[in-house]
Lab assay of single mutants.
Amino acid sequence: MDPFVVLVLCLSCLLLLSIWRQSSGRGKLPPGPTPLPVIGNILQIDIKDVSKSLTNLSKIYGPVFTLYFGLERMVVLHGYEVVKEALIDLGEEFSGRGHFPLAERANRGFGIVFSNGKRWKEIRRFSLMTLRNFGMGKRSIEDRVQEEARCLVEELRKTKASPCDPTFILGCAPCNVICSIIFQKRFDYKDQQFLNLMEKLNENIRIVSTPWIQICNNFPTIIDYFPGTHNKLLKNLAFMESDILEKVKEHQESMDINNPRDFIDCFLIKMEKEKQNQQSEFTIENLVITAADLLGAGTETTSTTLRYALLLLLKHPEVTAKVQEEIERVIGRNRSPCMQDRGHMPYTDAVVHEVQRYIDLIPTSLPHAVTCDVKFRNYLIPKGTTILTSLTSVLHDNKEFPNPEMFDPRHFLDEGGNFKKSNYFMPFSAGKRICVGEGLARMELFLFLTFILQNFNLKSLIDPKDLDTTPVVNGFASVPPFYQLCFIPV
């Protein structure tokens, strides 16, 4: 058959498939802009700032609406009420993970971030239990974070109060905490193996944040037939998995079943207990991918939040002064901060919360999916439909947070200066898919920041009023603009 005829037939089939998918069930789905064949609503979305586009569309179609990214149908949730109703009140029905062709290629359905069903539930339950087990290797997770915080302070001392970009050092600290939990080992910041790991993690975040990856996920045929950065992403992930597998083999040879040292040991012990169960989800494949998931999810998000926190503290020296006064009063100079201190430091706690609220790190979270046909607000959402959640619409709700575009710790303080919780605080998402490392991340943010401010004054290279804190939105995360500062020993 003539190649031209084959091409026309293929394009015609794709067009018909697109029209059929977009028209099927439209009477039951939430409203939304009319999609174009094949490309859907992509032309109506700013790929570099999806969150802003969703906010604009919500003003037209309401808090629940339908979009098509290519052939992929998505239902968008915008605003606290619908997000709570879906992710919390109907948590089980909305607990699936959205379709990610690239991740599915890399992870093969294993791990904790992109798995679904029984596998996801069992691996998540085990990971939560293990991360909360403060007795691994007779050292609590808090001990590990405190140790890394001391190392971080010593690295900052080496800058000798000269101007520096904190990106690298602030990236090393949370990565080392995860390494300590998974591998029972922290690395020197100049260790070549550690630097290679950091390089792969950072490069992957840069790649994932590009519009090209959005295109690959919406048109998965590209993955096999086109060159691009997605190939580098898959190569980096394969490198990390190979490295983790080597460490798993080392653990198998040296493990003491009665004295687990780290996450890998705990997983291997669980595998041993379930070795007679042919349906067990505790396999080497799941261990390797879960460890890679924890490394990827637990490094860049925390380091970016820390980097943004220091920029905001530079911009608002009056806030920094209040935090340091609270540190001096509650902790002093002669001991290290600990998590028990947080309950006695409402202002510092409010500042950490406000940093996370203000920066809105992951504006749309990772997409969910419905696990069955769901009736939601008089609409029928078919099983498997991807759910896109606007966390921006919750964290920047102007009824809950007056002047949401302003950095103001009073958003989390009552009139008496006591810490005030808010149900709208969802930087880790909400419901059954809430970030498994939430507790660890909150511990790291509090301890790293208090250790830094206990030991250093922060000095800006320019007038604080002239510092730009506008986030650089890159399609996946909101990151701070480049800046330098000086760490002046107190």
Rank of each mutant, 00 (worst) to 15 (best):
F407W: 06
E281T: 11
F94H: 01
F239T: 12
D349T: 09
A161K: 11
K322T: 14
V248G: 01
L380Y: 06
C216G: 05
N133I: 06
T320A: 11
F448G: 03
Q276N: 15
C338A: 11
L156G: 00
F187Y: 13
D143Q: 10
I222W: 13
I207E: 06
F168P: 10
D188W: 05
L54I: 13
L15E: 01
G171S: 14
G343T: 14
C338K: 13
D373P: 07
S140C: 10
I244V: 09
I244C: 05
E253R: 13
V479G: 11
M443T: 15
R186P: 04
I434S: 13
V355E: 00
K399F: 12
N378E: 12
N474S: 12
I39C: 08
C151W: 12
R377Q: 11
S242R: 15
D414S: 09
P363Q: 03
K118G: 10
E92G: 09
N474R: 13
L461N: 13
I331Y: 00
N259V: 07
G431K: 01
I88G: 06
G137D: 12
F263E: 00
L413G: 00
A86G: 08
M271Y: 13
G40D: 02
F69G: 07
V288I: 12
L90D: 07
G111Q: 02
P3L: 14
S95G: 12
D408L: 05
E104H: 10
G332Q: 04
C216Q: 05
L294F: 13
D256V: 06
R442N: 15
R261H: 05
F263N: 01
A430C: 13
I182H: 00
Q324S: 10
S180G: 10
V83Q: 04
V64A: 06
P211A: 11
F487W: 06
Q146D: 08
K249V: 10
L485A: 13
A161V: 07
E72P: 00
F168M: 14
Y61V: 00
S429G: 14
I45K: 03
D341L: 05
I462K: 15
V355R: 00
R125K: 15
Q193E: 13
F419I: 09
V370S: 09
Y347C: 03
D466A: 11
T167Y: 15
